[in-house]
Every structure is written in structure tokens, then in C-alpha cells.
Design a protein around this nucleic acid. Structure first.
Lengths: 107, 107
DNA sequence: GGGTCAGTCAAGTGAGCACTTCAGTATAAG
DNA sequence: CTTATACTGAAGTGCTCACTTGACTGACCC
């Protein structure tokens, strides 16, 4: 996973409206209009956010007739989870190493 | 964990320079100057980033004499990991439900 | 066909933010 | 005491980005 991609993922999650879209989609797939309705923003704005969320692997969309249906995608969440887990692991390893060091000093 | 806090966390991680600071700190604690050196930005810029990373629970800093030493903190990473895991779980539950639904239709 | 509905495209605007410079403070070194 | 170091604070700048408006396309309904 290239660093630039992870950048874009976190940047995508940094926006409140986009996080609201994700939250809304956890309740089930929705059309663009039904996403925009409770958000208090334009249809266009939601469409722009959806593009970002789609490019970063959080959302999948499919157009049938004139309505585009949006749903969540696991890819993005897995990547974020993995990134955080890796960094937490690094941190814990460092903490362990520090513990060992202190233990040695006590000898 | 309030939604506004998570917003700020993801926003914090969205910036390439801040992610570089985190990456640098995984190798061990560093002073502000030693962080700024390879990043190609001003000491002031790094200090500003550190403030953000500290407020969002990714970094811990301590000033001794005239040098401020920075190190990683697990809090932020745990929060991110948890958020992603929760959303992935929600997604998987929905997929399971969908599977059940399809299975029922086959009857 | 006409009319609405769901979404798209292009262009513009405003606010936030990353970053800088410069001046200042406090600690360490000679 | 003088000088260098490590940072801090205030203020300014430029650019990105969220959001809007308005014109448009294509699908469904009567």
C-alpha cells in the first residue's frame, strides 16, 4: 500500500461530511439523493464526496437507470485498521525494548 | 470517543508531513530539531504539527532544559484501529445478513 | 409528446490550513 | 559575560478543498 494512497484515505476520513456519509451507509445502501437529504448539503457536494470515498476504497457505487446506489466497501476499513495495528505494534515493541533496557540496568 | 475528536484524528493523519513525523518517531524519540532536519520544513512548522499530533493523542512530548523530546503514544493508534475495526465489523454483519437473505430466497 | 426526477459537469467563491519569516525567550557552552 | 542553541509566538501568504450555483443529460411517468 503506497504512502500516497494512505494519505488520501486519512484525508478522506478527516472530513465530517464524508464521515457522516459513511455512518449513514452503515445502515444500508442508499441513493445519492437519500444520502444528501439529511446532510444539509447539495446533491453535487455529496457526489463529489462519493467520488473521493470511492477512490479511496470506502464506498462502492453502481448506477441503475437514473439512480446511483452507494454502499460500503471493506477495502478502506481494512487498510486503516492494518495501518493503525502496525503502528501500535511498533510502539509496543519499543515499549518492551525499553522495559528490557530498564530491567538490565537494575542488575 | 466524541465524533469531533475522531474527525481531528483523521484530519491529523491526512497530512503527509505529520505522517512523516509519526514514521520518524517509530524509530525512537527525537527532538524537534532532529525531526525537522530531514523533513525539509521549518522548526516552526514541525512544532505546529506536533501540537496537532499531541492534541489528537498520537505523540507525547516533554521539555527538558531547552530541548523538547517527542515520542509516540498508543492512544491515537488504538482509537483509529478501533474505529476501523468497528466499521469493518458492521460491514461484515451486513454482508452476512445479505447472505442469509439470498439463502432464504433460494428456498 | 411534455414534465418531473436523479444525477452530472463546469466554473466560481470562501474559509481553513500548511508553511514561512522574523522577533523573542530561555538554556547551555566557552 | 558573550555567543550559540533550541525552541516559541505572532503575523502574513498562498493554495487546497468543501461547497454552491446554474446549465445540462438521461431515465421514468402521464
Amino acid at each position: 500500500m503506497p504512502a500516497a494512497d494512505i494519505d488520501r484515505m486519512f484525508q478522506a476520513l478527516g472530513d465530517p461530511t464524508r464521515r457522516a456519509i459513511i455512518a449513514s451507509l452503515t445502515l444500508g445502501p442508499k441513493s445519492v439523493s437519500r444520502l444528501a437529504d439529511p446532510l444539509g448539503v447539495t446533491l453535487t457536494a455529496v457526489a463529489q464526496h462519493l467520488r473521493v470515498l470511492q477512490d479511496t476504497g470506502f464506498v462502492r457505487t453502481e448506477k441503475l437507470g437514473r439512480v446511483r446506489t452507494c454502499s460500503l466497501q471493506a477495502t478502506g476499513f481494512r487498510a486503516v485498521e492494518q495501518w493503525a495495528a502496525e503502528h501500535r505494534a511498533l510502539w509496543e515493541r519499543r515499549m518492551d525494548a525499553l522495559g528490557d533496557l530498564l530491567a538490565e540496568e537494575e542488575d
